[in-house]
Design a protein around this nucleic acid. Sequence first.
DNA 1: GTATCTTTCAAACGTTCGTTTAACTTCATG
DNA 2: CATGAAGTTAAACGAACGTTTGAAAGATAC
Lengths: 226, 226
Amino acid sequence: MGQPLSSSGNDGPDIRILDAAERLFMEHGYEATSTRMVTRDAAVNLAAVNYYFGSKEGLMQAVLRRRLDWLNRERLHLLDAAETEARGAPLKPSLIVDYFFGTLLRMGARPETGGQTFQRLLGRTHTEPAAFISTFLASEYADVVNRYKSALCRALPDVPREEIVWRFHFMLGATAYAITGTDSLQLITDWKMEEDVQVQAQKLLARLMSFLLGGLRAPLPQSRSA
Amino acid sequence: MGQPLSSSGNDGPDIRILDAAERLFMEHGYEATSTRMVTRDAAVNLAAVNYYFGSKEGLMQAVLRRRLDWLNRERLHLLDAAETEARGAPLKPSLIVDYFFGTLLRMGARPETGGQTFQRLLGRTHTEPAAFISTFLASEYADVVNRYKSALCRALPDVPREEIVWRFHFMLGATAYAITGTDSLQLITDWKMEEDVQVQAQKLLARLMSFLLGGLRAPLPQSRSA
DNA sequence: GTATCTTTCAAACGTTCGTTTAACTTCATG
DNA sequence: CATGAAGTTAAACGAACGTTTGAAAGATAC
């Protein structure tokens, strides 16, 4: 285990800062979250953010890296194992989609990996305008996205690579929006409060997987029309 | 025509402020955009934002309202006309999806309705954390979303209403992410620069429609498994 | 116990923020 | 021309921002 993933309550100051920042960045976004809010919630001195993470930008990167490193390593392990077992044969699209998006959604049901908090933060972070965030995400995702794009191309040999890339983009957008759970349009008004977070996540996963696979395997758009 | 939609270059100060704010909010987000940046780009005095729009929040709402009022009115007109012509028969799902999402994408190809700038701003705005933005969007979308949800339920009588709502949510997420064009993961690296904005928008529309319809008509997830 | 390194702390740094004020200009109307 | 509303302006307001500082406190090794 490289870095600690849990927040058992009596952690060091740096972990408490990461936990507080994760929640506040998720709730208010990067710009609207001040270092004073973070240090107050983490019960540390104002200077602690700069002492441990250098700057507010460094804190944001540390918050994302703590979970993303684990997530993308898991994604690569699953794909590696499946491709090794398949001995060069193409994988099923449903398996590839489940490894990439299902791993993220199952992560949200486990509190020791940040639970829903990190899920919602990550979904929102994909549309954060700050340049350093885009750069950071691109470097964190570079390997895993290329691997999954290649796997999808082998799994769907009749679909042009350009189309695969676009549909990966669409799947990412649907997932990012679904896990943020902001629901600014209040489309989802019937949250069952009696259900625990595991059941909710499982139902969302099943629904999202059906949608993503339906979109991924949809007939190609005709290039010339209208 | 209620309010002017174009920016011919020699408009009044309030229109110049809206144009500048639309571009800056799109590029940097709401929080990272200051009233000083807006007034500098619009070539007006610093106090003009408060004079014309009351506050920075009022400016943001005016920026969104200028385009959203037109967009959602158009969406309702198209649905009204089609339902009148159908005389109570359910509409084709592809038609409903095209009216809702296609109208938005076609809007982006026309400079007089804000073009890509408003499209990208709107996609990003759906995930803005500020509470007043969620409230504003909810009120702007309330009517049109309810009408389209009902139309989809009639068009797909075998799909439970709850499932329709979720898939509408997924479609919205895929579309919002696609039109922001932020591409923080640099998935889309092969933008054809020689193609004009109309051709790009048309290709995106065709691709997105295939994906959305594939997801909307996907087989339902089995409720009990694993 | 002394020396050395790490961590914590209150206080302040300079800058930028959204907003307000009051004086000034513009300009159509009587 | 006189009047008053509408628009514009420079200047300033208090508050909050990210970051830095230097000293105090704590921990570790000899």
